[in-house]
Every structure is written in structure tokens, then in C-alpha cells.
Design a protein around this nucleic acid. Structure first.
Lengths: 341, 341
DNA sequence: TTGAAAGCGCTAACAA
DNA sequence: TTGTTAGCGCTTTCAA
């Protein structure tokens, strides 16, 4: 045995079988008896054999790659760099792919033509797809054609997913505002059909209900402009609002702008808790207290799952959403929970 | 000729040469006469032949990949997602790599151990490296070991680079503030040793000098906190400051926070122009007028250059830095240059 | 200078 | 069920 990386030939020899059989075992395709499977597996383990993905790709004609898919209504230039959520997915996936000979393909597909494009991707994906942003129906559509898919947002129950506790995060945010003495707690929600937004909205509703607070909801679109407009309307309709739970930091950034423009101060007049803990959260004035979504971790886990051979039907993994205190909420009356500047 | 992608065999046949000769021509290695070279090239053009990179990788044992390198003093989690500049490099490079069978490898290396790690990368890179963030000496160090490198920031003169007009951008920013009637124009600069920061500083200095304005400079670190601290000190030392040129949006976000905290208003009391046009620019309150750095375009160009077979020694490409007007500068007295909200 | 031929490491028909 | 045998498309010796 040489010092070089072992090949499938080495494995076959050590196991005393042909290369074909070794290949069958390694690829988990039928056509090998149990005893031989055992021997091959032992040889693989002993040699520390790792298939050469390049050779594999050449032989099969397929690249080993993870497809990161972002379905977006707006494909304008710069969508990724400026999208505080999606831009965290890539850095999460990337390190997982180091040294395993797999590519990362990125697909930004427009909502309008999504179905066709997803079909295309489904037919060419190898390791599988990570949905960074998608609607449940499109996710299900893709999943029907290709089982190798993991979603980072809640989708169809059948589609494997990494799930952040959006409901719990929203619930906690409202509770926190209540603890700080706020009683007129408004909310700016995300798109009506967006699953993350739906969960956060539900969390807000349940919390306000439990606490006996009024439901002061407005709809946003997960974009800064939407946050601005919603906050403005909210304040016009309910001038006595003393806090807002806002379903993403980008909208919260807009809301802060609107609140300030109305002559109110944050957090003195209106306390704010955002969602995501994206870069936007520290750029606002003042910086946002927010609920941290562990996007990078979720993306890594998804990539690892795909790399390991694909998830099981309905696979689900939970991720916590934690409070990050900054200055858009006032300090509690007692004790010291300092904001970071 | 079939409907399939043409292979080198097709090229060879059409040119009436052997596969070996075709390969030599295509790879630009010596050992083929001029007339044959011509015939092969013609065949390549006619067939629209594109080498299969997987086969190439298998035959040579080398992966085709572009290495994106970020040297950073701080390797803490989330550095990429929250770095408004670097997070735009990936989306720039990515699309260029679609369908050309090349990987994108991302390396975040700590300043402390950079030299060794860069050696390692230099010895394994194939298409070459893109420096998203690096110091001139490290860039030169890498370049000495491997010529295939393009920097997105100004480095050693020998190292090929995509250069944004940082000097001109800063110069224009100051001029703009002057046109708007500001006369006490301060600056918050980036790290003393950072080339981009150096150029922007120089632009500010030259502009203030030409305009006969005082040099009101403070040092920052390209981070929000640094912008906050610098702005605070600046205002203490020179309470009559009526405008600031700030060398990056992230610092500008901090500066806005500090200015507001001091009881001043933006843009009424202090006009602000940032730099980058990153996501931070629209999250501040009010949104920033800023100088747009075309990071995505620069990154694409770098990737294309590398893909085309590596840059020439001293290759240089210029990119403009344009003004984007938002609300952190007041409107001109005459005419209408509306800020976008 | 040119071409024939042997791989690179693997998969997948096809036989046995 | 197993093994034999072609390739996948390219590079690179080695002879000619």
C-alpha cells in the first residue's frame, strides 16, 4: 500500500472483490450480497477510503454540488448583498464544503418563472438543494421531483427543514416588551404568505392575547420601505403606541426612521424589538434589540445533512431564537441589563 | 456531429490533428507548429468547444477553483455576513462561475497566521486567488509564490488589481458637501494602513486643501463602533463641524448615532456622506448619501480575468465611484436633487 | 513537431 | 450475485 490516497481499486483488492462490487457497496446500490458488503465496508474503514469526486463526476456526468435556491419576487442587481438574511446562508454553507470536493451553486430565481426553473434545478442537482427563501408550494413542487432538499424556512410538512423557533421568538419579544412596562405594543408583520412571517405573527398574537393587550398589527414586506410606511400608519392610527415588535430588522430600520420622523424617540417613547439580528440591527439609530435567528448554523446543518446523503422525509431540526439586547428597548426598572452600544 | 457538447476529439478530428496536438494548442503549451495551432483554434471556434473541466481535473489531479481570500484581524463568528463589503464579493464572483465547472473556495484567514496559510493556498490554487481584503505585504507575499491573483483592494504595484477610484470618490464627496454650503467638513478615516482608507483620506485632504477648508480628521477602524467614537470626539473638539465625510457606511452608521446623541440633527446640523453604498447606508436614520463602490462588478471582473487564464503582470482595471444621494445631505438650494426615502 | 496510447478513479453495461 | 470491460474527456508520457 502506497502513501497515496487509496482508490476504489485498493479497497476492492483488500476486500478481495472486483471494483464493480466495491462500487456497488460504496454507492449503496443493490446487487451485492451481505457478506461481501461487510468485507468492502471493512476495507473502506481500514483504508480510510474517500471516493474521488472528480472521477465520480466524470464517470456519471454529474457534478457533486449543493444548490442554494433563493426564490425572490425581485431579481434586481445586488439582491444578495443587500439581503441581510440570505447573505448569511452562503457563509454558513461554505465551510462545510471545504475539502469534500463539492461545489456550491447559487440560484436566484424569480417568483414568476420559478416552477420551470426549479424543475430544471431538480433534474440536475446531485447532493441536493437548500432553500434559503421559497414558498411552501414551490418547495413541495421541487420536493416531488427531488427528495434531496432541505428548507431553511418553514414549508410543506413533507419537506425536510431546519426550523427556527419563529413563533417562540415573537412570543418572547412581546413578553419582554411587556415586562419593560409597555402596554400598547404594535407589530409590523412580514408578507402574509411568508411562513416565517406567519409564525412570528402568530407568536405576537398569542402573546398579546395572553397578556390581555390590544392587537395593533400592520403588514410589512420584510423591506425597509415597508417598515417605514407601516410604522407611519400605525402611529397615525394609534398615537398611544409605546412599543413595536417588528418581524425583521430591515423593516425595523425603516420603522425607526418613521418613528423619529414623527417626533417620537426610541426607546423612550417607543420601544422596539426587531428580528434576525442582521447587520441592519446595529446600523439603526439607536441600535436594535432583536431576536437572533441562527441562520449560519441552520445553513451549515442543512449542508451537512445533504452531504451525508440527504435527509429523511420530514426530517426536522429545531433552532432557538434568542434575545439580543441593544438600545431600542429601555433598561428594566430593576437589575442591570445593559445595552451594548 | 452530434447534438452533444463537442469534445476535444471532435476538435482534433475537425482540425485533422491528434487529440494530443489539440490539447497542446488549447492549453497553450509549446510543442505544436504555427499552422496546426491555427487549424485547431479555428476548429475550437467553429465548434464552440469548451473543455470539460471535470475531465481536466481528473487527468491533472488538480481542481479548478477560484480562491477568495479575506484576511481579517478578527475571525469571530459571522464576520462575513456582517461585513458589508466582503459580503458583496461572493455574489459578484458566483455568477461568473456558473457553467464553467469551477469551484469557489472561501478562505477567511487571521492576520496573525496569514503568511503560512497564504503559502498553503498559493500552493494549491489553480485558477487563482481573489483578495477581498488583504494587506499589501501579504498580497505581495502571495504573489511571489503564485502569479494568479487579483486584488480588489489596492496592494503592491506588482499585484494585478481591480481598482476603485477611492481617491476620486472622497474628493467628490468633499466637493459635494462644499457645494451644499458646508464649510467645516470633518472626516472619519479608515485604518491608517488600509490602502482604500489611505486613498480616501488623501482625497479628503486634497479636496479640503483646494477648497481652503480646515483639515478636521479623525481615525476610525471601518467598524461602527469606531465611527461612533470618532464622531463623538470630533464634535467635542470642533463643535462647529457642519458636515462629515466618513470613509465607510458602517462607520457612518455609528457616526449618525453619535451625532444624534450629541443633540444635533442630520442633515440639518451636520451633513454626512458615507462610502460603499452598503446595506448599512439605508438602515441609518436618516439614510446615507454615500459614494457607491461597485464591489460586485469588481469581483466579477476579477473572476473573469482569472478564468480567462490569469492576469498579466501589473494588470489594472479602473472602476468609478459614484455619488448616491439620500437624506443625510440637505437638498441643494437650487434645482431638485431629491433624496430617496 | 506530431501522434499513439496509457492512464486519472470511477460508474455502468453487459456477461457470466 | 459477481466480475469483466468499456468508457467519461482530458493530459501527458513516450516513440516516431
Amino acid at each position: 500500500m502506497s502513501t497515496l490516497k487509496p482508490t476504489i481499486e485498493d479497497v476492492a483488492q483488500l476486500a478481495g472483490v472486483s471494483r464493480a462490487t466495491a462500487s456497488r457497496v460504496i454507492n449503496d446500490v443493490p446487487g451485492a450480497s451481505a457478506p461481501l458488503r461487510e468485507r468492502v465496508r471493512a476495507a473502506v474503514a481500514e483504508l480510510g477510503y474517500q471516493p474521488n469526486e472528480t472521477a465520480r463526476a466524470l464517470a456519471t456526468g454529474r457534478q457533486r454540488a449543493i444548490d442554494v435556491i433563493v426564490v425572490t419576487p425581485d431579481l434586481s442587481v445586488g439582491w444578495l448583498g443587500t439581503h441581510p438574511y440570505v447573505s448569511r446562508v452562503l457563509p454558513g454553507v461554505m465551510p462545510v464544503l471545504q475539502g469534500v470536493n463539492a461545489q456550491l451553486r447559487l440560484h436566484a430565481v424569480a417568483q414568476a418563472t420559478a416552477a420551470d426553473e426549479l424543475d430544471q434545478i431538480a433534474s440536475t442537482t446531485t447532493l441536493g438543494a437548500v432553500f434559503a427563501e421559497i414558498t411552501p408550494d414551490l418547495a413541495a413542487h421541487f420536493y416531488r421531483r427531488c427528495r434531496r432538499a432541505v428548507s431553511l424556512v418553514r414549508t410543506d410538512p413533507a419537506v425536510p427543514g431546519m426550523e427556527a423557533d419563529n413563533f417562540g421568538g415573537a412570543y418572547e419579544a412581546v413578553n419582554r416588551l411587556h415586562q419593560l412596562g409597555h402596554r400598547r405594543i404594535a407589530a409590523i408583520h412580514g408578507p402574509t404568505l411568508n411562513p416565517c412571517a406567519i409564525d412570528r405573527r402568530a407568536g405576537y398574537l398569542q402573546a398579546t392575547q395572553r397578556l390581555g393587550l390590544a392587537d395593533l398589527s400592520a403588514d410589512g414586506n420584510f423591506r425597509r420601505e415597508g417598515g417605514y410606511d407601516a410604522a407611519q400608519q400605525l402611529l397615525e392610527r394609534h398615537p398611544d403606541i409605546d412599543a413595536m415588535f417588528i418581524a425583521c430588522d430591515l423593516m425595523a430600520a425603516g420603522a425607526v426612521q418613521a418613528i423619529t420622523a414623527s417626533g417620537r424617540r426610541v426607546p423612550d417613547d417607543v420601544g422596539i424589538i426587531g428580528f434576525d439580528d442582521s447587520i441592519a440591527a446595529v446600523c439603526t439609530n439607536p441600535p436594535l434589540t432583536t431576536m437572533r435567528l441562527p441562520v449560519e448554523e441552520m445553513a451549515s446543518s442543512a449542508a451537512r445533512l445533504l452531504l451525508a446523503g440527504g435527509p429523511l422525509r420530514g426530517h426536522r431540526q429545531q433552532f432557538p431564537v434568542d434575545l439580543v439586547v441593544r438600545e431600542s428597548t429601555r433598561e428594566p426598572d430593576t437589575g442591570r441589563v445593559g445595552g451594548t452600544r
